[in-house]
Every structure is written in structure tokens, then in C-alpha cells.
Amino acid sequence: MHELSIALSMIEQIEEQSAKHPGTVRSVQVKVGVLSGVDAEALRFAWELAREGTDLAATLLEIESVPLLVRCPACGNTHTPDIQSILCPRCITPEQDILAGRELMLVSLEIDS
């Protein structure tokens, strides 16, 4: 359950931002790639624990899951494979360049002031 350390890092970064932009953090937007190693449900659970005692008690956590997006270096085909079978469906080249799906990102905050 490393999602707790991730939730704590997230809160640290949110607090840094809210120090610069005073107000109440209404919501936070987070992107979680399928290859980030983070489970969205576990992150939600960890978020509940991690935000105890902070000013984020009413903040809404919005998680956007990012599917895997790859480009075939051989034929240029861009596709969204299953993470268990990454090869290019058009030319069967196995190794693909990963364009998206690894991200674990704090995208934005909505702040009420």
C-alpha cells in the first residue's frame, strides 16, 4: 500500500500551492496512468487517511485514469493496447514507444476565495 506515501506527497504539494493561492481548496484534479503502479481506489482510501487534520477536509479528489497510449516505431501506428499485450496490432512489432500511461500527476486545483 504505497498509495499512502503518494497521498502524503500529494497533500504536501497541494499545501505548497494553497500557500501561494489563498482560499479553500474546493477540488484537486489528479491523473493516474495505468502503468503508474497506483490504484485509484487505494489512492482514494489513502487520501481519506492522509487528509485528516489538514485543511482539505472538504476537498473533492478527482482522479482521471489515463489509458496506455503507444506508437509503433516501425509503422507509426498509434494505438491503446491492453497493458498485458503491448505489441502493434497492425504490423505485430513487439516493442512500442510509450506516449502516455505512466503519469502520476497533480494537474490542477480549484480554489474558492
Partner: peptide, 15 residues
């Protein structure tokens, strides 16, 4: 008033 603050930082950037 509600403002949207763009952050776009990796959550594990410190690591």
C-alpha cells in the same frame, strides 16, 4: 469566486 490553479507536477517529483 472559484479559480483554477494549473499545477501539472509529478506527484513523486521529489523522489
Amino acid at each position: 469566486m472559484t479559480r483554477l490553479v494549473e499545477v501539472r507536477s509529478r506527484i513523486l517529483k521529489e523522489n
